[in-house]
Computed example of a mutant assay.
Amino acid sequence: MVRFLPIVVIVLLMIYCVIEVAQSRPDEVRRAPRWLWAAAVIGLPLIGSVAWLFLGRPNARSIADAVDERFPIAPDDDPDFLKRLR
């Protein structure tokens, strides 16, 4: 039973990464398009999953870069909202 544990761990890691790739927004993914990350995770389960976790997964910086600058993040950043308070 112990000899199957690494296989089970790799399969669970691959499933987790495939779901995470599918749920991430395309403009937040780093270094490669989402479809390429999905192919890497499925085609090379251990290497692709680890690469996704360290190189492709959205982080705070990639999410901040993807935020549309046309819309304010908080009410006090919105000039129209501040004008209505007066």
Rank of each mutant, 00 (worst) to 15 (best):
M1D: 13
V2Q: 12
R3Q: 13
R3K: 12
R3H: 14
F4R: 14
F4I: 14
L5I: 15
L5C: 07
L5S: 07
L5H: 12
V9P: 04
V9N: 05
V9W: 08
L12P: 01
L12H: 02
L13E: 03
L13Q: 00
L13K: 01
M14D: 01
M14K: 08
M14N: 06
Y16S: 09
C17G: 02
C17H: 00
V18I: 11
E20C: 09
E20L: 08
V21W: 01
A22I: 07
Q23M: 10
S24C: 07
R25G: 10
R25F: 07
D27F: 10
E28A: 07
E28N: 06
V29H: 02
V29I: 15
V29C: 04
R30I: 00
R30Y: 00
R30D: 00
A32R: 12
A32K: 15
P33M: 05
W35G: 13
W35A: 13
W35F: 14
L36R: 14
L36T: 11
W37I: 04
W37E: 10
W37T: 10
A38W: 11
A40P: 03
V41W: 03
V41K: 00
L44W: 12
L44Q: 08
P45F: 00
P45W: 00
P45S: 00
P45E: 01
G48V: 02
G48K: 01
G48N: 01
S49L: 02
V50M: 09
A51R: 07
W52D: 02
R57Q: 02
R57I: 04
P58E: 03
P58Q: 05
N59K: 04
N59C: 07
R61Y: 12
R61H: 10
S62M: 05
S62T: 14
I63W: 09
I63T: 14
A64Y: 15
A64C: 14
D65L: 15
D65I: 14
A66Y: 06
V67Q: 14
V67T: 15
D68I: 04
D68K: 08
D68R: 08
D68S: 04
E69Q: 13
E69I: 08
R70W: 08
A74K: 14
A74S: 12
P75D: 01
D76G: 11
D76K: 11
D76A: 10
D77V: 03
D77Y: 04
P79H: 06
P79T: 08
P79M: 03
D80M: 09
F81E: 09
L82H: 06
